Computed example of a mutant assay.
Amino acid sequence: MPQIEQIAATLSSQVFWLLVFFGLTFVFVGLGMVPKIMGTVDLRDKQIAGDLAAAQTARDEATSEEEAWRKRENANRAAAQGVIGAAKAKAAAASSVKLAEAQTRLDGRLAEAETAIDAARTSAMAEIEAVAADAARDIVARVAGADVELAAAQAAVKEAMAHG
């Protein structure tokens, strides 16, 4: 068979060209494309690592800014509470002064009223004694037909009121 006899002659030629093309492919791909691809992968890995580092740095800065903001906010709250406390104390002091002034005015009015009441009471008691003395004289005159002096009637009324 002639086809089988040709295999030996063409096989070595085909193997040779196969090795040449595989070699060229290896050189082209292995030495030309793979380093470029690996360089791109390394560059991408470095860029990702840099981006992650930048993100972590930004996160740390944001955390420190937030911490500083919280401290300022707490200090501002404490200052506001101090201002509110001072305002309350000032208002309480002003109210105390106003209440003391009002109490002094009320005490003065009360003393005046008590004096007026005492004077009215004394005047009323004097009028009651005078009316009672006149009534006692009239009653004695009508009942007993005797005329009692005004001074005696007043003395009897005072004694009766003192015991009564």
Rank of each mutant, 00 (worst) to 15 (best):
P2G: 01
I4W: 06
E5L: 00
E5A: 06
Q6I: 09
Q6N: 11
I7N: 05
I7K: 04
A8V: 03
A8W: 00
T10N: 04
S12N: 15
S13I: 11
Q14F: 02
W17R: 01
V20N: 06
F21H: 07
L24D: 08
L24V: 12
L24W: 04
L24Y: 01
F28T: 04
L31H: 04
G32E: 04
M33D: 03
I37G: 04
M38N: 13
G39R: 05
G39L: 10
T40E: 08
T40F: 00
V41N: 02
V41K: 00
V41R: 03
D42R: 04
R44D: 02
R44I: 09
R44Q: 11
R44Y: 11
R44G: 07
K46G: 02
I48E: 12
I48T: 13
A49S: 12
G50H: 10
D51F: 08
L52R: 03
A53L: 12
D60H: 00
E61L: 15
A62R: 09
A62H: 07
S64N: 10
E65Y: 07
E67A: 14
A68P: 01
A68I: 12
W69D: 06
R70F: 15
K71R: 14
R72S: 10
R72H: 14
E73H: 12
N74V: 08
N76Y: 15
A78G: 10
G82A: 15
G82F: 13
G82W: 05
I84H: 13
I84T: 08
K88C: 05
K90N: 11
A92F: 01
A93M: 13
A93P: 10
A93W: 03
A94F: 04
K98N: 07
A100G: 05
A102F: 10
Q103G: 01
D107F: 06
D107N: 14
G108D: 05
L110D: 11
A111I: 03
E112W: 04
A113K: 10
A113V: 00
T115E: 04
T115K: 08
D118I: 05
D118E: 15
A119L: 07
A120T: 12
S123Y: 08
I128H: 01
E129T: 09
A130T: 13
A133C: 10
D134V: 12
D134Y: 14
A135T: 14
A135E: 13
D138S: 14
V140W: 04
A141P: 02
V143H: 12
A144Q: 13
D147A: 15
D147M: 05
V148A: 04
V148S: 05
L150Y: 05
A151S: 11
A151L: 06
A153G: 06
A153L: 00
V157Q: 08
V157M: 02
E159V: 07
E159D: 13
A160R: 06
A162H: 06
G164I: 08
